[in-house]
């Protein structure tokens, strides 16, 4: 049981980098960006292929980060310049990335088994595989939380946040909302690809199918974090993203331990997200109906 929890926590920390990326689009820019499903694989594919080709794992990981930002740029241009709805723009990029990822890997998957990765430096010091994931995954996501906290407190970051809230106001203040969307989507997908690179190195392979359902996992983690830590100060909200990603993995590990078949996992996650997203609406509707029954006597 201890081993299962350890593995869940470490996996959660690697995924929390992706969830931070989803936070930037879903919470800051207020769009659901499906590019994620392709850019996580792109990050994994770039990192794994480069590592297999003999490149430095750290350099490969950084290259994955930049590859992801380009995927975000494509979605952003489709959305802002060609006026394609954000959801559809993400689907188009995601679909295109399937072919791109196969090109990058030259096959459906790339194994980097027994090849040194970014985690090897830690395991060489004698720590376990999971401990290496936790140390690196934890420090990368903490570093990113502080970086994002700083960035969204700057003039540029503030303008991006405002763009997600009220584009009219932002334009009236002389800010190009298209540019803000582009920067936000690039940051988001860079983080997602970075997460993909770390995940690929932790499992020693990249697979073209590994992105399936990743956006829903990201949303589920966001919701778990928000439910547990609430919507408080910005820094706490960002930390709750990491927390949510970890708790989500622990929940999944526990339900599997209690006998859930892995094939049912995506159904379980989808239902969880549906319930969490609809609870505020349903409870408001119920309250309204109750109010109507009472004749609005005590509003």
């Amino acid at each position: 049981m201890g081993q299962i929890l350890l593995s869940a926590v470490s996996l959660g920390l690697l995924w929390s980098v992706l969830v931070l990326g989803v936070y930037v689009t879903y919470k800051v820019l207020d769009i659901a960006d499906l590019t994620v499903e392709g850019s996580i694989v792109l990050g994994a594919a770039v990192a794994a292929s480069m590592i297999r080709g003999g490149h430095n794992p750290a350099a490969a990981t950084i290259a994955a980060f930049f590859a992801g930002s380009i995927a975000g740029l494509v979605t952003a241009v489709l959305h802002t310049k060609l006026k394609i709805p954000a959801l559809l723009a993400g689907i188009l990029t995601m679909t295109a990335l399937w072919s791109v990822n196969l090109r990058v890997m030259n096959s459906a998957n790339v194994s980097i088994l027994r090849i040194p990765t970014v985690f090897t430096a830690f395991t060489n010091l004698g720590v376990s595989k999971y401990a290496a994931w936790i140390i690196l995954g934890g420090s990368v996501s903490l570093l990113l939380v502080f970086a994002l906290y700083w960035f969204f407190g700057t003039e540029l970051g503030g303008a991006i946040r405002a763009t997600g809230i009220n584009k009219n106001m932002v334009r009236a203040q002389g800010i190009n909302t298209d540019t803000m969307m582009i920067i936000g989507l690039m940051i988001s997908n860079a983080l997602v690809a970075l997460s993909g690179a770390l995940i690929a190195q932790s499992q020693s392979f990249a697979d073209v199918q590994m992105g399936m359902g990743s956006i829903v996992i990201g949303l589920a983690s966001l919701i778990v974090g928000e439910v547990l830590l609430g919507r408080r100060f910005f820094l706490v909200r960002l930390l709750s993203v990491i927390f949510g990603a970890v708790v989500y993995r622990v929940i999944i590990a526990l339900v599997m331990e209690f006998g859930m078949v892995p094939n049912d996992l995506k159904l379980f996650t989808a239902i969880t997200v549906t319930v969490a997203l609809s609870v505020p609406y349903i409870s408001a509707a119920v309250k309204q109906r109750a109010g109507a029954r009472d004749g609005g006597g005590h509003a």
């Binding site: 960035f151 407190g153 700057t154 003039e155 540029l156 106001m169 203040q173 002389g174 800010i175």
Partner: peptide, 16 residues
């Protein structure tokens, strides 16, 4: 107010 105070200027990486 800070967003409005910078109307027409470049948004930089200075604290907002």
């Amino acid at each position: 107010l800070a967003l409005a105070n910078r109307r027409g200027t470049r948004r930089t990486l200075r604290w907002q």
